[in-house]
């Protein structure tokens, strides 16, 4: 298995000085290509910081982060933007769709920033929306769709440009149980199609769906094990 994510001895310290907060405290972690990982922790455990770090939204105070063998721990804002665009598909708890754009336009956004031409962009976006079962909702705006549908648009947006990593932050946190099941099954399917999936959650029920479960507490990884109950 090839290394995709490699975090070496990473610390993230907020307010350095007397009242410093060690959100991440000497964390090391390797995730290989094609893994399905859940990172679970209580609020304040540092899991959001870890997710921002993994998603190249944040840089570590110390330590290194290699993504695809490339050191991404100290990059400029624009370099980070490019890495996010190329490597990472985000799925957020709050969907984070742009309200003034249609489903199709939302899915097209990362492709626009990548510089994909109009025709190809449309084809890729339509294919992505088809794969999450929203071929009939392309021209709808977010406020014309249910939460589950909005999250499916967000998933389509995350996979449209086929990034190596899907990074899902509490993907079912805002959804009812029916929609949650739907979303989890789509995520599982994407994993089975060969994508690397990382889910960040506080919900053991969601974490149980993953193949590998990493538990984080007080900025430290306290357990990292294969899920014995994993079912395909």
């Amino acid at each position: 298995m090839k290394k995709l994510v490699e975090i070496k001895d990473v610390c993230k310290i907020y307010n350095p000085g007397e009242n410093e907060v060690r959100a991440l405290d000497h964390v090391s972690l390797i995730i290989g290509e094609g893994e399905f990982v859940a990172i679970i922790g209580q609020s304040g455990s540092g899991k959001s910081t870890l997710m921002n770090m993994l998603g190249c939204l944040d840089t570590p105070t110390s330590g290194k982060y290699f993504l695809h063998g490339q050191d991404v721990s100290h990059m400029t804002d624009d370099e980070q933007s490019d890495v996010r665009n190329r490597e990472i598909g985000f799925i957020f708890q709050g969907f984070n769709l742009i309200p003034s754009l249609t489903a199709l336009e939302n899915v097209e956004l990362p492709l626009i920033y990548r510089g994909v031409g109009k025709k190809e962009r449309e084809n890729l976006s339509k294919a992505a929306l088809n794969s999450v079962g929203l071929s009939k909702r392309m021209t709808h705006k977010p406020n014309e769709m249910s939460g589950g549908q909005q999250q499916r648009v967000a998933i389509a947006r995350a996979i449209a440009q086929a990034p190596p990593i899907l990074l899902a932050d509490e993907p079912t946190g805002n959804l009812d149980s029916g929609s949650s099941k739907e979303i989890i099954s789509i995520i599982k399917r994407l994993y089975n199609e060969g994508r690397t999936v990382i889910i960040i959650t506080h919900d053991p029920g969601i974490a149980k769906q993953a193949k590998r479960i990493i538990t984080i507490s007080d900025g430290k990884i306290v357990s990292d094990m294969m899920n014995p109950d994993y079912v395909d």
Partner: peptide, 16 residues
């Protein structure tokens, strides 16, 4: 602000 955050997370550069 949130829209700008979304766009940035999706890979928008400062110049975009």
């Amino acid at each position: 602000t949130r829209e700008i955050g979304i766009r940035k997370s999706l890979g928008a550069r400062t110049s975009s």
